[in-house]
């Protein structure tokens, strides 16, 4: 399965791989929101954690439809399904690749963009940690959505509609951890719930993704 991971990472960084798409979108959100809100530094500080979380979530959403669609178009999904790798493994590797290419860079970039939004000094660490704990769930849930819509022409719209409600718990708890961290409040409960959502998704959704892939490949 490591072979598939290496191939997908290689494809992501070669031309047309879409590696920078999510990052560029995230950067745009963080740059444009202060301009739209106006010059109120205290307001920026209050909304910074939420805006950065929302930006990260939407950036993740942007590249979801590529997870299986490209492999489906060129026929490699059929061939992978008949290969010795279990389809559950394929789904897990696809989610991991999506996280490495989208979620991890967003997590690393977010504290830097916190400066643009006047994030309070206490918030940087918790913003970073909440994204680190939450973005894997975004990738795994997104992979499940991509598996549901694989084979549909222009399935991106349906994919976003399917995935958005599933993203809400992660967004609520993740942004709450970052906000409470920035305001120096206790973060135990939202962090525990965020981790629970992430670990539950990682444990269950690759199996669900493989199941719907099998149905969609028929």
């Amino acid at each position: 399965m490591i072979v598939l991971l290496i191939r997908d990472l290689r494809l992501a960084v070669r031309s047309g791989g879409g590696f920078g798409l999510g990052l560029a979108f995230f950067l745009l959100v963080a740059v444009l929101v202060p301009l739209a809100v106006g010059p109120q530094a205290d307001l920026h500080a209050r909304i910074a954690a939420g805006i950065l979380w929302l930006g990260a979530l939407l950036s993740c959403l942007l590249s979801l439809d590529r997870i299986f669609a490209l492999d489906h178009e060129d026929g490699s999904l059929d061939l992978l399904a008949t290969s010795p790798i279990p389809l559950e493994g394929v789904a897990a590797v696809k989610a991991l690749t999506h996280w490495l290419v989208t979620g991890l860079p967003l997590t690393v970039l977010a504290p830097a963009l916190g400066v643009l939004l006047n994030l309070p000094p206490d918030g940087y660490l918790w913003l970073f940690l909440s994204l680190l704990a939450g973005t894997p769930a975004l990738s795994v849930i997104g992979t499940f959505g991509a598996a549901l819509t694989v084979g549909l022409k222009r399935g991106g719209l349906l994919l976003s509609l399917l995935v958005l409600p599933l993203y809400i718990p992660t967004l609520v708890f993740g942004a709450e951890v970052a906000r409470r961290g920035a305001e120096d409040l206790a973060i135990g409960v939202p962090l525990a719930l965020l981790l629970a959502v992430t670990m539950g998704s990682i444990a269950l959704l690759p199996f669900a993704s493989a199941l719907v892939l099998r149905i969609n490949l028929r």
Partner: peptide
């Protein structure tokens, strides 16, 4: 299948090597 499952941005050798490693 009808479709060969090739990745356009990988070379011929890389494409084949990938499937060899999968198997």
């Amino acid at each position: 299948a009808h479709q060969d499952g090739l990745k356009a941005t990988l070379t011929v050798r890389e494409n084949l090597q990938f499937w060899a490693r999968i198997y």
